[in-house]
Design a protein around this nucleic acid. Sequence first.
DNA 1: AGCACGCCGACT
DNA 2: GTCGGCGTGCTC
Length: 735
Amino acid sequence: MTDVTILRVAVPTPALDSFDYLPPPDATTAPPAPGIRVRVGFGARRLIGLVVGHGRESQVPLHRLRPVLKVLDSYPILDARDLELLCWASRYYHHPLGEVISAALPKRVRQGHAAARDGIILWRLSERGRQPGPGSMLRAPRQAALMALLGEHPEGLDSTQIETRLPNSRQPLAALEKKQLITKTSRPCLDVLDVEPVPAPSLNADQRAAIDVIVAGFGRFNPMVLDGVTGSGKTEVYLTAIAAAIEAGRQALLLVPEIALTPQLVARFRARFSGPLALMHSGLSDAQRHCAWHMARTGRAQIIVGTRSAVFTPLAAPGIIIVDEEHDGSFKQQEGFRYHARDLAVIRAHLWKIPVVLGSATVSLETLYNVERGKYRRVRLPARARRLSPPSLETVDVRRRQLSDGFSPLVLEQVRRHLESRDQVLVFLNRRGYAPALVCHGCGWAAACERCDARLTLHAGRNRLCCHHCGAERSIDPRCPACDGAELLRLGEGTERIEQALKAAFPGVSLVRVDRDTTRRKGALQDKLAGIERGAHQLLVGTQMLSKGHDFPNVTLAVILNIDQNLYSSDFRALERAAQLIVQVAGRAGRGERVGQVILQTHLPDHPLLEQLLRGGYEAFSRAALAERRLADLPPYRHMALIRAEAVRRNAPMGFLRRARAILSNSRKARVDLLGPAPAPMERRGGRYRAQLMLIGGQRSALQRMLQEGVPMLGKLPEAREVRFTIDVDPVDTL
DNA sequence: AGCACGCCGACT
DNA sequence: GTCGGCGTGCTC
């Protein structure tokens, strides 16, 4: 054996593992350390890879190893512990290491640009550009449009932002710069507050206790659940804990479900900290993301607030990780590399030996299970810092009742009562559009998607039929295409219809609808929320969007119209999600001086979940639900993984998964149950047929061993040729 | 995923 | 006689 160092290099390719390379030929320098990017020859291509480790020997004969072509960094761009996190995630989720690393790095860094990026270039109007011009741009409409755009954004826009709003604007940009009508400046991607921060409000005893637990755990792995209803002051605990971390010279990473839905949270940060804060979310341009990433890794950002993928942000001095709304499903990536950011946050905190706080009013059953096993410490915030008493929850039985546009008369009566006392009323419905089905009264034909096994939803506003599963849309049929009947019924209710019905029932009352359709425009959500806050609207109609992250202090009644959908679902997590939804919506009501009222309209008033929730709250529900999971041998008591497959040809996914099942079952006699394969509940989606194979094991290690042995063989199957398959470890939905 | 290699149809 | 179709197999 020689004493040459062999480099393990991860390259962006579907291969599960890294590839071995030799150090560059110039023996004068030390071989590149783990965490350094290298350019390598890979087959006929040249790729940028990341050194993930060193070794003394290789499975590959030494003479076949190629030397790396170029070392791209002088220093590692990732810390050894973060590299370990990524390698761990690749093994745990059975996803190619190169793709895992790609998910963790900004695109520009993946492409080989210098890791350092101190600022982004912002364009704005110059002094001269702001003067009313001579109007000599009649022959340069693109320049004029650009001037108008920049005039609307005095804060400045970077080239990517300009390009998305005004494509092909390079030339006019250069022309205007030459005319000195616009200027560019470089600014770091940090939010630095230049006003005096608001002093921390005094904390109550429970908040104080929570802080004490967190701070006492600084400098070691200390996983903690912060369990408190809306209004109990969780955010204040986060803020104080983050302040303590900064005080100790460390950084804080805060993960939130969706940055667009948390402007209030971000606003509170801005008001409390003068320290530099970096935002990491999907709305950033490549340059902004690169810059924010660099601010975090060099320690220039003290607070990093971000969504799911921000869990990978390298930090110079990590002090604490906080996961807000830890139960939220958006922490789980639902395609490709299917990681769970909350779970990776805990692993990362463990590797870094720092505290991690999981906050929620509706703790997930997984997390509750970890509390009960003694793995996580739980601190409750029972006292309502800003509320008198919890909202009253009640059901309205709609069996055998005539509903008009989805409303029971009883519910409408309650809405009227609250409106008459000048209070705000929130109506929640988890379905966009006007009606979920367009059906022929003559023959029963229903408008269906051509690419999915699904009905099309009628959108009255856009006057189109839309598929909510693949995004396809088309015009509304004037007559039945099957029998030429003229009477087409719009069955069921979506938010558009609810809006219309409420406007008819309460004319003159200002109503605002908040769903994906009404908030498509950038800033529309913010505008609507601001309108609600200043009391411009009395009736609020909306989907999920309204249930998350915003306080509506003047809402005294919240109505949940179609909770039954969730209660009938076949997914084993459906009840947990329904309970979380109810509690989250209830959290919107009655946060001012008045007690809130929550009404669930249901055909299942005797449903055990609803009874439990109504009698004992989420706490009682979650205990009972956990006990049920134990009896049913379901997660978190057993561990689950899915192999999902899809293909254009109908039988291909099932055929592939049957072979997969055979391979997995003879790979080991481990105590892992294989269920299926079975077609997905909606078999065809976006023109592809889908099926899945479920693996459930009492021991995580047994499940992992089975996957570890089996998964590398799956790609080699001849049946794999025409299917796309992914491994989903700890799936959040089994549909 | 790319990209090359390979073995069969319509063209300068 | 070749250009190119995309099936299949590999990349340290």
